[in-house]
């Protein structure tokens, strides 16, 4: 593989987003890309539970959520003991392009960062890039 031809229908995605309408939009775009198994939650705590339960192949995550936001969620994921779960690819999807936030996310080894507004093409390219990189680093 390598150039973006993924079997999206065999993968599962976890979406963390507290705003109902935005979440529905993300899910709609993911379906358009070809994903079938999409799991939705509205904050980091439920996200952790769903992550352990589902073991998704990809995580799309908002930053500002209550009670647990995206940065705290990512930090918790990265600190898990099981390396295959701790290293799952996480893409932030947020309107927050604040430099400090981006730096903090980088520090926590976020795999991708998309600032809203995002388009279908943009989202797909980002997902393909992240999945390709993830396959390359976890492959050997």
């Amino acid at each position: 593989m390598g150039n973006g031809d993924f079997n999206y229908d065999l993968m599962s995605v976890l979406v963390l987003e507290d705003e109902f309408h935005i979440r529905k939009l993300i899910v709609r775009l993911l379906r358009e890309i070809g994903f079938d198994s999409i799991y939705e939650v509205t904050d980091g705590i439920d996200g952790m539970k769903e992550l352990l339960r589902v073991r998704p192949d990809l995580i799309l995550c908002d930053i500002h959520m209550e009670p647990m936001g995206g940065l705290k969620f990512l930090e918790t994921v990265r600190s898990l003991k099981t390396s295959e779960v701790a290293n799952l690819p996480v893409i932030f999807l947020t309107a927050d392009a604040d430099v400090d936030t981006v730096l903090k996310a980088k520090e926590l080894r976020v795999d991708g960062y998309i600032t809203k507004p995002f388009s279908l093409a943009h989202l797909k390219i980002k997902i393909d890039t992240v999945l390709t990189e993830h396959a390359a680093t976890s492959g050997d």
């Binding site: 309408h21 935005i22 939009l25 709609r28 809203k116 388009s119 093409a121």
Partner: peptide, 28 residues
């Protein structure tokens, strides 16, 4: 514009248009 197109606002029932529009536009 691209986001609004991708969100297919044009296909939504009128009463939902405002909610979705504000969801997309407020952040930016």
């Amino acid at each position: 514009y691209q986001t609004v197109t991708d969100a297919r606002l044009t296909e939504l029932p009128d009463r939902e248009v405002a909610d979705f529009f504000f969801a997309i536009a407020t952040g930016p």
